[in-house]
Amino acid sequence: MQRVRRSSGQTLSLLRSLMDRPRSWHHGYELSKGTGLVSGTLYPILTRLSDRGYLEHKWLPPQEAGKPPRHVYRLNALGIAYAKEQFEITDEAGIEATGTVSRA
């Protein structure tokens, strides 16, 4: 049986934030505020989740004149399953997603 690797606290925090409204699109600043992650931590995790095929992303047309299109994110079906799996592992281990867990 393949051993499932536990994600870092920051990744878990981001997964929880994305799973709050899993079908909605989230933008970077919203995720940053929701998780407390700074952009230097947030974007590498988003990139990694995307590379692993867990994250969908797209460009939203600008809501206000003079602003650029905005990049938004949400978990896909695989990502939702991955998030649930990670939450189970974390709950079993009794670890809070505080950022102190070993990195994924």
């Binding site: 933008h27 970077g28 600043y29 952009s39 974007y43 988003l46 990139t47 992303h57 602003k67 650029p68 299109p69 905005r70 990049h71």
Partner: peptide, 16 residues
Amino acid sequence: ERREWADAMNAEMHYL
């Protein structure tokens, strides 16, 4: 190959 992510971060700046 990651330029899209740089553009994403750049675009987000305009909404902060």
